[in-house]
Design a binder for these strands. Structure first.
Length: 198
DNA sequence: TGCACGATTCTCT
DNA sequence: GAGAATCGTGCAA
């Protein structure tokens, strides 16, 4: 039921595509939040100028990307927010990961609202962005390097999303990446109302 | 030791 | 659509 190590040891672009529709679960003390992954982006190894591992850069922050696959890479951005990635790839030791950009809330919506500090009827604003979903799911640097093969933070298998239901576009917020910003490595479920942008 | 900047979000116009 | 919020990180010096 929980996705196993081998799932993450495929090509990182494949993992990004396959993660769509899968179920992210975070069990914190007496509180469980669950979301369906509806948008991802792939970041490749040293060659990808959009990645934190660009040029083989290896620092305490991105160290987890160089380790085994299937672990969480959580980083702090803009002095305010967190984003969560899943280390993936078919080459051991190669620093690659999949950014989770949006979720569809499945369970724990009341908690998500509280964590996001919003109070409105529609749920679309809870998890439709990489940092929003971290807030809603209670993910922070404490979850960095978490093993995603077991609780409290893990991803469950779910029915495969057919190719025709997946949209491919360029990645968001990587204008600094030169030619690499043009790569179609952002994936989302077509027509889903929880994606972060068109 | 200093400093520019970011895989974002929110508010206001 | 523009601008602010806000600080850890990375690299130069």
């Amino acid at each position: 039921m929980i996705l196993q190590r081998a799932f993450y040891q495929q090509e990182v672009v494949t993992v990004a595509r396959e993660l769509l529709g899968k179920i992210l679960v975070h069990e914190s003390v007496e509180v469980v939040t669950v979301g369906r992954i509806v948008e991802t982006e792939a970041y490749l190894g040293p060659e990808d100028q959009a990645a934190h591992s660009s040029g083989g850069r290896r620092t305490p922050r991105n160290e987890v990307m160089y380790g085994p696959k299937g672990y969480a890479y959580v980083y702090f951005i803009y002095g305010l927010y967190y984003c969560v990635n899943v280390t993936s790839g078919d080459a051991p030791g190669k620093p690659e990961a999949v950014l989770i950009r949006a979720l569809e809330p499945v369970a724990g919506k009341a908690i998500m609202k509280k964590r996001r500090r919003i109070n409105e009827e529609k749920a679309t604003n809870l998890t439709n962005g990489p940092s929003k979903l971290c807030m809603a799911m209670g993910i922070s640097k404490l979850q960095n390097k978490a093993n995603l093969i077991a609780p409290p933070l893990y991803i469950k298998d779910a029915p495969h999303i057919s190719f025709s239901d997946i949209a491919e576009t360029t990645r968001i917020g990587v204008d600094y990446a030169g030619e690499w910003k043009k790569r179609p490595w952002r994936f989302y479920i077509k027509g889903n109302s929880f994606i972060s942008a068109k």
